[in-house]
Design a protein around this nucleic acid. Structure first.
Length: 769
RNA sequence: GGGCGACUAGCUCAGUUGGUUAGAGCGCUCCCCUCACACGGGAGAGGUCAAAGGUUCAAGUCCUUUGUCGCCCACCA
C-alpha cells in the first residue's frame, strides 16, 4: 500500500524534530582521538546582547556547510560553539533595561548590577543556543564556551599577566576618546567618524599689554575655557613678534602664553591655534612639549565642571552656544565660517566622544604585529578574499598601542592591585596577600575591566584549553578556518592572529574567510537597534530553515554585500518543495511498483547503491549514463567551489543539477521505463533512479540538512511503514549514520571514467544535455 | 586626504586565471491545474555588459581616463 506523503513540504513539521534529535544523539560531538584528517573551527561567538540576527545566520550557514561537508568526507570535525560577554554592548543593554524601570545602574552598585547582567546573560545565551539548534548548526554542545565564564577567566588573566611580565602591557596617562554616555574610554576602533557640517568660530584673544588681538579659529569653542596657550608657527612672520607675549583668555580673564610650535599649519584658519591640552590630542602633545597645564573643564558625563567658571553645570553643547553668544556680546567673535569635519562618535551609543586625559592600561602592539604580518605574508594564514589582505597589512603596519582598560563593570576585571598607602602596582594571576614592594596588606583591585576584544582575541586558544596542552589543543589547534564578517577584521581577526601567535608560537587558524554583510533593501547594514534587521525566527517559520540556509548560501558571492529579499526566499522555499516532491514521486511509485511484484531490497543497503549505475543486460542505459555524468560533474563543481569558499557557485550548481537535470529531464525520461513490462529493465531504472537521488541528497545535505535528513530516513523504509520512529527501526538508524557520509558520491565519480567512453561514443555532452 | 568595491536583461544579482550564439531567480507574453510538484510544466520576448580610448587574432573579463553610487581608513584646530 502506497504511503501518504504531504503534497507540499512543510518544514515546520519536520525541522524541530531533527534539531532535537541531533542534540539528543550528540551526533556532532568531536573526539580528539577519532581517525581522519582534522577540520576544526571555532564559532565567532555571538554577543549575549539579545538574539541572533540575520547576519549571524550567514556566518552559521557558511560554517555549518563547510563543517558538514568535511564531516561527510571523513574528517575528524570540530565545530565549537559559544558566546561572548561583549562588555560595553551588553552593559549598555542592561543599563537601558534598568533605566526603563526607573533604576539608575550606578545607584544599584557594582555587585548588584553584575547580578542583573548575569541574569540577562543566561536569558540571551539560552535564546542564542535555541536559535543555533533551530538553524541546524552541527556543533559540539559539550564544548560550548563563554568568554567570561569561570573556566575562561583564568586564561584571560594568564594572558594578561604574561604580557605584563614581558613588558608589553603598561600603564600611562594619555589623552583618549571618552564616551560621556557609556562613561568609559574607547579605543580608536570603537570611535566611528561621521562627516558633519559644522562651523569654524574665529575668536579674538587680546594680546596682553597691547591693543592687538590674536585671532584663533576653533570648531569647539567650549574647550577654550581650558586653554593654556595660543600657538603659532615659528616661521610665521605675521606672528613672530607676539611669541613670548601673553594673551588674555576671554571669558576666563586668564593670561596664557603665546608659544611657537611647528605643529601649527600656517594655511589653516588664522594660523593661530588655541591650545587646550586636556581636550585635544594635538594640543595635548603640544602641552607636554611646552610643559603647559592641563585643565579639564568637563565632567564624566559631558557637562562643564567647576574649572569652567560661570559655565559650570551646563551641558557641553549648551555651553558652546552660550560662550558664542557671550563672545559676540563682548565683540570678540570675529566671524563664523562653514566647516565640515569628521566628528568622532562612540560606536555603541553614537555620542560625540570627548578627548580626555586619563591613566589607562595599554598593550604595545608593534612587537605583536610584526610576526602577525609575517605569518600572513608567508601564507601561513590565507586571507580570502584577497583584497582584504592589503587592508590587514595596512592596518597592522600602522598599528598603535591598544587601550585595554575600560571604565565598565561587565567584563574581566584587570588583574592589578594597588596598595592603598603607596599606590604600588601588583599584577598577578590571583589576588595577592600583600604588596610586593612595601608589604602592605591593604590592597585594592583595579576597578576597571578589560576591553571585551581582549578575551575575544584569545578565543581560539582559550576554548581549546590553552595554556594547558590538552588533547583538544593538541588535536584541533591551529584551527582550520575562521569565518566571519569583514567588519571585524581589525577588532577581532587581527587581534586573534597577534595574540594567538604570541601565546602559542602558532597561528590560530590557517585561513580566514571574510564574508559579506547582509543588508536591507535600502543598503543599510542590518541592525536591530535601527529596526532594520529581519527576524530570522519569523523568516524560519515562514520559509523553513533549509530554504533560508540555501538562499543565503546561493547569494554569498564574495565581494558584494547581500540584500535579502522575499523573492529569493520564496524561490529557495520552492526549491525545497521541489526536492520534497521528487522524493514523493519516488516513494509513492516505488511502493506501487513493489506491490506489483519485485522488491528492491538492496535499495536499503548503501554499499549496494554505491555500485550504481546499474546495467541492463550488460549495458548502462543511456539516460542513466548521462545522469551520472551530470551528477559527477556537479560533485566536482561543488567540491571545487566549497574548497574555495564559493558557496554561491556550489549552491547554484546543485540547484541547476537537481531541478534542471534530475527533475526536468531525468525523472521525466525514466517514467516510462519505471512502468516497463520488462521486469529487469524496470528494476534497473528504479535502482539507478534511487542511486542518483541518494547521491543528490548527499550533495544537498550541507545546505539543507533538515530536509535531507528527513528523506534519508524515509529512503530505506519498506512500504507500509508510515511513521518514523527511529528507535523502532534499527535498520534505519544504521542508514542515517551512513547517510551522512559522502561515500556514494565518491563511488559515482569512479564510475564516471567508464561513462566517458559511452558519452564520447554517442557524442553526448552532459553540459548541454 | 588616502585606499577599496560596485555599475551586466524591467528588478535583484552570477559570470576566479581574456576564447565559440553573455547566464540565473523574480517579473513579463502565450499555452497547460497531463496520475511528484501551480511553491508546478512547456514555449518565448528582453542586454551596443556605465562612457570614451587602448592592448590583443580574440575583452563583460586586462590597461588608461571620466562619470555615478557605496564602503573603509585618517589627530589638521
Amino acid at each position: 500500500m502506497a504511503r501518504e506523503i504531504a503534497k507540499a513540504y512543510e518544514p515546520q513539521q519536520i525541522e524541530p524534530r531533527w534539531a532535537d534529535f541531533w542534540v539528543k544523539e550528540a551526533l556532532f560531538q568531536a573526539d580528539a582521538n577519532a581517525p581522519g584528517p582534522i577540520f576544526s573551527i571555532v564559532i565567532p561567538p555571538p554577543n549575549v546582547t539579545g538574539s541572533l540576527h540575520i547576519g549571524h545566520m550567514l556566518d552559521h550557514t557558511e560554517i555549518d556547510i563547510l563543517t558538514r561537508w568535511h564531516r561527510m568526507r571523513g574528517y575528524n570535525t570540530l565545530y565549537l560553539p559559544g558566546t561572548d560577554h561583549a562588555g560595553i554592548s551588553t552593559q549598555r543593554v542592561v543599563v537601558r533595561q534598568l533605566a526603563e524601570q526607573g533604576i539608575n545602574y550606578r545607584e544599584l552598585g557594582r555587585e548588584e548590577f553584575l547580578k542583573r547582567v548575569w541574569k540577562w546573560k543566561e536569558e540571551s545565551g539560552g535564546t542564542i543556543q535555541r536559535q543555533m539548534r533551530q538553524i541546524g548548526d552541527s556543533c559540539d554542545w559539550s564544548r560550548e564556551k563563554f568568554t567570561l565564564s569561570p573556566e575562561l577567566s583564568p586564561v584571560v588573566r594568564e594572558a594578561f599577566v604574561r604580557l605584563y611580565e614581558e613588558g608589553l602591557i603598561y600603564r600611562e596617562n594619555r589623552l583618549l576618546n571618552w564616551c560621556p554616555v557609556c562613561l568609559t574610554v574607547l579605543s580608536d576602533l570603537e570611535v566611528v567618524h561621521e562627516e558633519r557640517q559644522g562651523h569654524l568660530w574665529h575668536i579674538k584673544y587680546p594680546v596682553a599689554g597691547t591693543q592687538e588681538f590674536l585671532v584663533v579659529a576653533t570648531t569647539r569653542p567650549e574647550t577654550m575655557l581650558g586653554d593654556t596657550a595660543v600657538a603659532v608657527n615659528p616661521e610665521d612672520e605675521r606672528y613672530v613678534h607676539l611669541v613670548g607675549k601673553k594673551a588674555l583668555l576671554p571669558l576666563m580673564n586668564r593670561e596664557i602664553p603665546i608659544i611657537a610650535d611647528a605643529m601649527v599649519d600656517r594655511e589653516f584658519g588664522t594660523g593661530a591655534v588655541k591650545i587646550t591640552p586636556a581636550h585635544d590630542p594635538n594640543d595635548f602633545e603640544v602641552g607636554r612639549r611646552h610643559k603647559l597645564a592641563e585643565i579639564d573643564v568637563m565632567t564624566d558625563d559631558g557637562k562643564m565642571n567647576a574649572a569652567a567658571g560661570a559655565y559650570a553645570g551646563m551641558d557641553r553643547f549648551e555651553a558652546r552656544k552660550k560662550i558664542v553668544e557671550d563672545l559676540k556680546a563682548l565683540g570678540l567673535l570675529e566671524k563664523i565660517t562653514e566647516h565640515t569635519n569628521a566628528i568622532g562618535l562612540c560606536e555603541r551609543s553614537k555620542t560625540i566622544v570627548e578627548p580626555r586625559a586619563s591613566t589607562q592600561w595599554f598593550c604595545k602592539m608593534k612587537p605583536l604585529a610584526e610576526p602577525a604580518i609575517a605569518a600572513v605574508e608567508r601564507g601561513e594564514i590565507q586571507i580570502v578574499p584577497d583584497n582584504r589582505r592589503e587592508e590587514y597589512f595596512n592596518w597592522m603596519r600602522n598599528i598603535r598601542d591598544w587601550t585595554l582598560s575600560r571604565q565598565l563593570w561587565w567584563g574581566h576585571r584587570i588583574p592589578a592591585w594597588y596598595c592603598k598607602e603607596n599606590r604600588h602596582v601588583i599584577v598577578a594571576r590571583e589576588a595577592p596577600a600583600k604588596c610586593a614592594t612595601c608589604g602592605s596588606a591593604n590592597l585594592e583591585q583595579d576597578s576597571d575591566v578589560l576591553d571585551t576584544w581582549f578575551s575575544s582575541g584569545l578565543w581560539p586558544i582559550s576554548t581549546l584549553g590553552w595554556p594547558e596542552n590538552t588533547e583538544d589543543f593538541k588535536t584541533y589547534y591551529p584551527t582550520s578556518l575562521l569565518i566571519t564578517g569583514y567588519d571585524i577584521l581589525f577588532f577581532w581577526v587581527a587581534r586573534m592572529i597577534m595574540l594567538g601567535i604570541h601565546s602559542t608560537g602558532k597561528v590560530p587558524f590557517r585561513a580566514v574567510y571574510l564574508h559579506s554583510l547582509v543588508r536591507t533593501g535600502s543598503g543599510e547594514k542590518m541592525s536591530k537597534s535601527k529596526g532594520t534587521g529581519l527576524d530570522p525566527v519569523a523568516l524560519n517559520q515562514q520559509y523553513g530553515t533549509d530554504a533560508m540556509r540555501f538562499c543565503l548560501a546561493s547569494m554569498a558571492a564574495p565581494g558584494t554585500d547581500i540584500v535579502l529579499s522575499e523573492d529569493k526566499l520564496t524561490s529557495a522555499r520552492n526549491f525545497a518543495n521541489k526536492i520534497w516532491n521528487a522524493a514523493r514521486f519516488l516513494f509513492v511509485n516505488l511502493d506501487r511498483f513493489e506491490e506489483s511484484g519485485t522488491k528492491l531490497d538492496e535499495l536499503a543497503a548503501p554499499e549496494v547503491r554505491a555500485k550504481a549505475p546499474y546495467a541492463y543486460r550488460g549495458r548502462v542505459p543511456l539516460v542513466d549514463a548521462w545522469m551520472f555524468a551530470r551528477l559527477a560533474a556537479t560533485v566536482e563543481l561543488v567540491n571545487e567551489a566549497l574548497a574555495n569558499y564559493r558557496f554561491h557557485e556550489a549552491a547554484q550548481g546543485v540547484y541547476q543539477f537537481f531541478w534542471g537535470d534530475f527533475c526536468d529531464w531525468y525523472i521525466e525520461w525514466v517514467k516510462p521505463e519505471l512502468q516497463s513490462a520488462d521486469r529487469e529493465r524496470a528494476t534497473v531504472a528504479w535502482k539507478n533512479l534511487f542511486a542518483a537521488f541518494d547521491a543528490a541528497l548527499r550533495l544537498l545535505h550541507p545546505f539543507m540538512p533538515f530536509l535531507t535528513e528527513e528523506l534519508w530516513h524515509q529512503l530505506p523504509q519498506r512500504a507500509g511503514a508510515k511513521s518514523i520512529a527511529l528507535d523502532q527501526f534499527p535498520e534505519a538508524q544504521d542508514h542515517w549514520k551512513n547517510a551522512r557520509a559522502m561515500g556514494n558520491v565518491d563511488a559515482i565519480q569512479e564510475v564516471v571514467t567508464a561513462l566517458r567512453n559511452i558519452r564520447a561514443e554517442l557524442k553526448l555532452d552532459p553540459k548541454k544535455r
